[in-house]
Design a protein around this nucleic acid. Structure first.
Lengths: 151, 151
DNA sequence: TTATTTAGGACTGAAATGGTCCGGTATCCG
DNA sequence: CGGATACCGGACCATTTCAGTCCTAAATAA
C-alpha cells in the first residue's frame, strides 16, 4: 500500500511536537506525554532523528532535544530519510547491480523519474506545514501535482 | 524507505510484458520466460491482477491472460492498488478510528493531502509509459514536481 | 475424454518491524 | 564532590509481514 512505517509516522508526530516550542529543549518523557507515544519508542525515534541531524541533543540534567533547524527548513522527506532511509520505490532505483535484469529492464529509468517526483513532493512539505491547524485546504505546492494532464 | 514490495515491482514487469502484445493471450509460463520472474510468482501475480480487474483471464487449454484495458488506461497506481491495496502513507489516512490520537492529531489532514498528491503522481503514469524504451528524458507531467523549491 | 491452464487457498522459511531494556557517559545542581 | 538527571549506543525479543512454493478443483479446447 506504499505505506511508511509506523515508527516514521510517530516520528512525524514527535517532530511536530518539537516544532511547537521551537527553541525550548524538551526531554523524551515530555514528548512522550505530549504525543501519546510510548516513552521507549520516543527515545528510539529521537536517537535516530539526532543521528540524521534533524534534532540537537543535550545530555545531563535539564538536557533534552530541540530542532536542529527551523521547522520550515525540515521537510517530510528529511524525516523519512532519517528514520527509514532515502525514498526509493524499487530496489533498482536506489542501487546499481542488484537486479539481474537490470541491463534489459525498460522500467528502471522510469522508476527513477517517479521516485524523484515523489521525493520532490515530500520535500515540498515542511514540518512547520504539518503543524498548522487547519488541513482541509490542500497545500498549494503539492496539490498541483494531481491536476496534471497525464494518464 | 517508502519502498513498494518486490511483488509489486515484479507485477509491473509482468504488466509491461503483457502490454508488449496487447491483444494476444499469453499464459503464465510464457510471461515467466519473458520476464525472468519465477513461474509460481508470476501465477500469483496474475491472479491478483485478475482480481483487481487489470487483466482478463481465460481458463483451459490455450487460455491465459491479457490486459483488460489498453495499456494507456492502466496506471501505476492501479497496479499498486491491485497488488498491495490503495496507496496510503499512514494508517490514519486510509481508515477512520484506528488511531487513538485521531481527534487531537493535527497531522492527519495533511497526510491525506500528501497521499492524494502521490496517488495523483502515480495515476499519471501508465503501463504504456513504463514500456517506452528511452527513459532518460524525464516524463513531462511528473518531472515538474521535482523542480519545485523544497528542502 | 484428455491435456491444458487458471482459481483459490494453504503453507513455510526468512526477514523486517515495533517495542523494550540495559550499561555507559555527560551534565547540572546542591 | 556526589547524586540525580537524561541522553547514547546497542542488544534483545515477540510478532507480523513478505516472498515464494505447492496442491486440489474447475473450466475449456481439441
Amino acid at each position: 500500500m506504499l505505506r511508511l512505517s509506523k515508527l516514521t509516522d510517530y516520528g512525524m508526530v514527535v517532530m511536530a511536537a518539537l516544532a511547537d516550542a521551537e527553541d525550548d529543549t524538551r526531554n523524551a518523557a515530555d514528548l512522550a506525554a505530549a504525543t501519546g507515544v510510548a516513552l521507549p519508542t520516543v527515545r528510539k525515534l529521537l536517537k535516530r532523528l539526532n543521528r540524521g541531524g534533524l534534532v540537537n541533543s543535550a545530555r545531563g540534567a535539564r538536557g533534552g532535544y530541540r530542532l536542529a533547524r527551523p521547522a520550515d527548513d525540515i521537510s517530510i522527506a528529511d524525516v523519512i530519510a532519517a528514520l527509514e532511509g532515502p525514498v526509493s520505490l524499487t530496489e533498482c532505483a536506489a542501487h546499481d547491480g542488484l537486479c539481474s535484469m537490470e541491463s534489459v529492464c525498460r522500467l528502471r529509468g522510469h522508476w527513477r523519474v517517479i521516485n524523484d517526483a515523489i521525493r520532490g513532493a515530500l520535500a515540498d512539505v515542511s514540518v512547520a506545514d504539518m503543524n498548522r491547524p487547519a488541513p482541509n485546504i490542500p497545500l498549494q505546492p503539492v496539490a498541483g501535482i494531481a491536476s496534471s494532464p497525464g494518464s
